[in-house]
Design a protein around this nucleic acid. Sequence first.
DNA 1: ACCTGAACACCGTTCAAGT
DNA 2: ACCTGAACACCGTTCAAGT
Lengths: 193, 193
Amino acid sequence: MADATIRCMAERARRGAPLTLEEIATTAVRLMDEAGVEGLSMRKLASELDVNPMSLYHHVENKEALLKLICATAAERMRVPPDDGSPWQEQLRELALAYHRNAKEHPALWGYLHTHPEVISHRGLPLWSALYRILRLAGVPEPEVRRTGDILHAFVSGFILAEINGHMPDDPEEIERNYDTAVHLIINGLAGF
Amino acid sequence: MADATIRCMAERARRGAPLTLEEIATTAVRLMDEAGVEGLSMRKLASELDVNPMSLYHHVENKEALLKLICATAAERMRVPPDDGSPWQEQLRELALAYHRNAKEHPALWGYLHTHPEVISHRGLPLWSALYRILRLAGVPEPEVRRTGDILHAFVSGFILAEINGHMPDDPEEIERNYDTAVHLIINGLAGF
DNA sequence: ACCTGAACACCGTTCAAGT
DNA sequence: ACCTGAACACCGTTCAAGT
């Protein structure tokens, strides 16, 4: 009896603890951070977790579902600056900066996310409520809020993707100036409404 | 002798004519149009051309080089509206529309291009010279032209990627309005310089 | 319930051989 | 010069079997 249980545990886990969805997700994120989307394979992930590749499928339907999962949690966990009562220009700038900072922490993940936007289209995300709030503050008429938000998000994501993909100068100071110009452009544009 | 040549030709080509780089490229584009980047594999491409997969490697170094090639030719062939003397706002609008139209013709290809921007960073491309010309016309000071151009391009590509990836409304009329708003935003923003 | 090995249908690419 | 088949090292995923 005792022998059987011991043998069972020894066999079912070449690892210390049983596999967790949480653990799978964080390891997947790490692999993506290290080597991009192309660096994440189910087999590599499994071997990183010291587990048979097929064990993963007990916790996740398939690779796409896994990617969706880690993108969704990243989007949900994104920290947006709170409403501190400052003028909308300032708040918009802060939100853009937060988004930028976030994306740079896990570039490959946000790259994937931006090219598979089902994940980010959930309107309850902190990102969207913050953006909509600021646009209303800026005086964008209610029926235009959502559209304008989509467009602004597309702009920012274009900027970030360009940066992630190396289509921007390398010098961080230069990037900072680019970012300033970009945000200024948007704010100027909005002010014209 | 004659027999040998005939047999040779028959064997070396299960197809009518010998393989061409041109032919490879256009078929690759078609496959991408039909099924996205993931729908293009060297093996599928070869079978589409009625050829052994390995024959491709005689014309192209590898898959990435092939993708680069078709993206580069697409970028070079892009038609940009000529300088017709109209105000810069109008010309910028037309350029954005041309870019948009172009991208929609081969969505997967432009999607890949935007996430692998080495291809489009060649400054001699018609796209860039047209954009720079219009920015100068708009009064952007010379040392800012290139930076502003990069940012505007990032914005437009973000918009287009969002559209390609379905993160925009489906109704074409709605998209048209989105596009108008986006271009207005940019023009307003530039006018504030 | 959770894990596994063998197997299947795909990849991109190398290499030695064919004409 | 151009093409090929067999082979290698990878994929994602199914399925039947193990505890």
